[in-house]
Design a protein around this nucleic acid. Sequence first.
DNA 1: TTTAACGCATCGTTAATCTATGTATCAATA
DNA 2: TATTGATACATAGATTAACGATGCGTTAAA
Lengths: 117, 117
Amino acid sequence: MYICSMYSKELVKGTLNVIVLNLLSQNGRMYGYEIFSRVKELTNEKILLKDGSLYPALQKLTKLGLLTVEEEIVGGRKRKYYNLTEEGTVRNQEYLIEIKDFFQTMSIVLSPKTIKA
Amino acid sequence: MYICSMYSKELVKGTLNVIVLNLLSQNGRMYGYEIFSRVKELTNEKILLKDGSLYPALQKLTKLGLLTVEEEIVGGRKRKYYNLTEEGTVRNQEYLIEIKDFFQTMSIVLSPKTIKA
DNA sequence: TTTAACGCATCGTTAATCTATGTATCAATA
DNA sequence: TATTGATACATAGATTAACGATGCGTTAAA
């Protein structure tokens, strides 16, 4: 899996957690590769999560108590299904509020017509 | 100057360059502390650039040929005025396009109602 | 049988940003 | 007059999220 996002790394940085948490909150039970595929599909291949980023992130979020894992064998292949915990749900809401506020603030800073004080 | 942004570091990461370039493209000639103040004012203190981030960033952008510097003494204090170069103007446009596209893409990923394929 | 897609893991590196600290001027204030 | 806060810039070292590279194993298709 060698892939590359159309956005500079720096931009995408800081959004991985909220992407993962939010997808899980909407779709429920998902496994890593499924998350990768779903993001790829939703973004028209504009955001391609790196597996070297995604899998460690899922492990980290689990360690933090935001996700639960269940391992299964499906079609001879190992899968790890993740689910949001209650804490994960709360954190997702917080993240969403923060990121939306941030995007709005950024659009003000970057708006072509800002009024000088 | 000890300050703290209301957003998590990770989110703001990757947006410093475009903030600086875009402010300069709108306001023309500005100095570091002025950029800090302007962003603070525009964002209602939600984004407070750290001086340990801003000044190195200005130096880096200058080294990259995106900015020019002129040093002046104003009111007994040293100021370094920055301006966009042509290359900086082009880069700013590219950054703007990228970040707006990215924000739109993110809003799709994070939208509460995504249609499953 | 080889390639591609599936599915997960991990080690070492990168690089943007932060923290902390330092310098110096000026205005206000206690 | 001494101190604080705002103005103005600088830098060395630490942090840390994410990345690149690599590895393992399965299944299906060419």
